[in-house]
């Protein structure tokens, strides 16, 4: 009886749940390079990303915003250095910022209707999320760096409004964010929720 009880006590505790049994299995996913499951992606260097940036700017100057947008969405940097990815993100955001709000939806619809258009909008969605992550990170770090916030005593308990107030430096990231948000809305209107799902499931990260 007592043995059974002890046994039950031992099984009732959930310490065993903390053992990562995957690590003990030889061919489990943690002991396996998951990236080999996918076909390799072409590598794009920073120089290439800059070249794309140049071409896209030229198109923008020529007034062909749609061509510029398509151009940078057809050449996403999936496999490349951080710098290359960063460069391309700036290219995309530059294009997005240069397009008027009234132009967004018709342009997205035209792109969506073309061959491979759905793929393009998926890429755009990935850059929108990346852009949001980048701008909010930038807003965070610039907020933290301001001396005003650093000197505010945190012990007051309430919100430290001094640090939270948008600084001049935050103004640009704020406007960048609003551009991204309005694009996000328009992309979902055209490409649907499936587009967000694909952005989350896709192994190809921008």
């Amino acid at each position: 009886m007592s043995i059974i009880q002890q046994h039950t006590q031992a099984t009732l505790s959930d310490a065993w749940r903390t053992i990562n049994i995957d690590a003990l299995t030889e061919d489990s996913s943690v002991n396996f390079d998951v990236s080999t499951l996918h076909p390799p992606l072409p590598e794009i260097s920073e120089a290439d990303a800059r070249a794309i940036n140049g071409q896209v700017r030229q198109l923008l100057r020529g007034g062909d915003a749609e061509g510029a947008l398509r151009g940078c969405l057809e050449m996403p940097v999936y496999n490349g250095s951080e710098a290359a990815k960063e460069t391309h993100l700036h290219t995309v955001i530059e294009v997005l910022q240069s397009i008027k709000a009234s132009e967004m939806t018709p342009m997205l619809q035209r792109i969506f209707a073309q061959q491979g258009g759905s793929e393009c909008l998926d890429v755009l969605m990935k850059y929108l999320y990346k852009g949001m992550a980048a701008t909010s990170a930038a807003a965070d770090s610039s907020g933290r760096a301001t001396p005003a916030r650093a000197m505010t005593p945190q012990a007051t308990g309430g919100f430290s409004q001094v640090g939270q107030r948008p600084m001049a430096a935050n103004e640009s990231t704020g406007s960048a964010m609003s551009v991204l948000l309005s694009w996000h809305e328009k992309v979902v209107e055209v490409a649907g929720l499936g587009c967000i799902g694909r952005t989350m499931t896709d192994f190809r990260r921008v």
């Binding site: 499951l37 996918h38 076909p39 998926d122 799902g197 694909r198 499931t201 896709d202 192994f203 190809r204």
Partner: peptide, 8 residues
């Protein structure tokens, strides 16, 4: 077979 974005 694997599709482009490789979802579950």
């Amino acid at each position: 077979f694997l599709n482009n974005s490789a979802g579950w």
